[in-house]
Design a protein around this nucleic acid. Structure first.
Lengths: 231, 231
DNA sequence: AGGGTTTTCGCCTACTGGTCGAAAACGTGG
DNA sequence: CCACGTTTTCGACCAGTAGGCGAAAACCCT
């Protein structure tokens, strides 16, 4: 029984969320698009394996985040001998445009091309996970360049979440968690003018929220999120 | 390369969180305790496999929740030929005490016995996942009987989270999400008297929160969690 | 200088969860 | 049968959070 690792590597480009795909040259499913990855070697664990295999497609230093998604193990998920897949979610900041082999391209996750095997469902799972984690972790910084404006960050959040996000709330929420650190610099305004936006960076002194907030916390501890009115 | 499925099946008993373990009879790691599970067959996916294998240990109808935890794939995680493991988290309500084979026992997760292979780390991962999900999902109901008092639910939460939880807050939070439905009945008071507790059941009409609350929500929608004062 | 554009900041409101205390409902012992 | 302890339940108060404006700031272009 074979084991392969696959990664849905996502990035934000403009107003859309994109996934890195490559076009299969050989059967089965020739000319369909599939996720990067490959066989797990006997001397590596799944995370080492996916990082090694992604290194052939992108500069791994540009990978700002990698995490396990789930195991996909339907017996007939690929034709031929049984192959179980460990799927990963990978993120790349929006400012880098890695050189990539000719057969790989970024595709908008909203209109995926004809995909090979069960890879489309893996992409959807990755998109859902990113959306969920954007709300309660700091994973959003993995989508942004080292220095960014609030507007850029808001656009990234909007693209990944699929709905508009208020820049006011975004800045306030992140600031309260001590995650935003002003660099002092400003970004030049757009072609139509406007006030120059202040630049921020991710503050390592902030609260790294890997797990969701606890709604019920131990007595005598500070509390997490708050509710507001919709009005 | 082999593939096995393992499950950390948790339940609350009294004030402690317990995990179901069985004692290995054969080498390697004879007499150490390990998680239930076994080899993945070629005609089943991982979830079917773990349910089939758990059926030999517990009545699967008593399993109130099963979800993938993670893949454990260190090349040397087991001696001999390479075996990759897909780990699951399973939950059993506290009111059932399934018949089980003589070699299996419930152990408190706080003081685990000498465990086989990497199974101790899997148990810890399961405990952390349960603790996280208790806060932002309805998974807590999987630990409780069909009808329960708020006090019992609070004790379960406390056991699983490791800190005391306020019954007032628990009831308020769950009620506001329309998750608690009074059955009308009351539970008899304890030996030392006291007001009889009202019985509740899980309301299917409530908000099933599988994913965490979004801290940043779409404009014009209700809001999720609120913060309070620690005072 | 004036108008358009974008960002930034402050104010208000709604709602949440923690804390505390009182009241309700029971058993028990004098 | 009434006072007491026990446990549950409910209400009130408070601090802190996020959503929703709207005004002010800072820039470009004409």
């Amino acid at each position: 029984m074979g084991h392969e690792v696959l990664a849905a590597v996502l990035r934000v480009r403009g107003a859309s969320l994109q996934v890195m795909l490559w076009e299969r040259a050989r059967e089965p499913h020739a000319h369909r698009w599939s996720l990067p990855g490959g066989e797990l070697r006997v001397d590596e664990d799944v995370e080492s394996s996916i990082r090694r295999q992604l290194a052939e497609k992108v500069d791994v230093r540009q990978l700002s985040h990698v995490e396990q998604l789930a195991v996909f193990s339907a017996p007939d998920r690929v034709p031929g001998p049984r192959v179980v897949a460990t799927a990963f979610l990978g993120l790349v900041p929006s400012d880098v445009d890695p050189e990539r082999p000719a057969d790989t391209e970024w595709h908008c996750v909203e209109k995926l091309p004809l995909m090979a095997f069960d890879h489309a469902s893996i992409v959807h799972r990755a998109r859902n996970r990113l959306g969920s984690k954007l709300s309660y972790t700091n994973i959003g910084f993995a989508l942004a360049p080292p220095e960014f404006t609030i507007s850029l960050l808001r656009d990234h959040y909007s693209a990944a979440l699929g709905y508009r996000v208020s820049a006011t709330n975004l800045q306030r929420v992140l600031s309260r968690r001590l995650l935003l650190e002003p660099t002092g610099g400003t970004a030049p305004p757009g072609p139509s003018g406007g006030r120059p936006a202040a630049l921020f960076r991710f503050s390592a002194k902030g609260i790294l929220v890997t797990d969701p907030f606890a709604v019920l916390r131990p007595p005598g501890s500070g509390r997490p999120a708050g509710g507001g009115g919709t009005t």
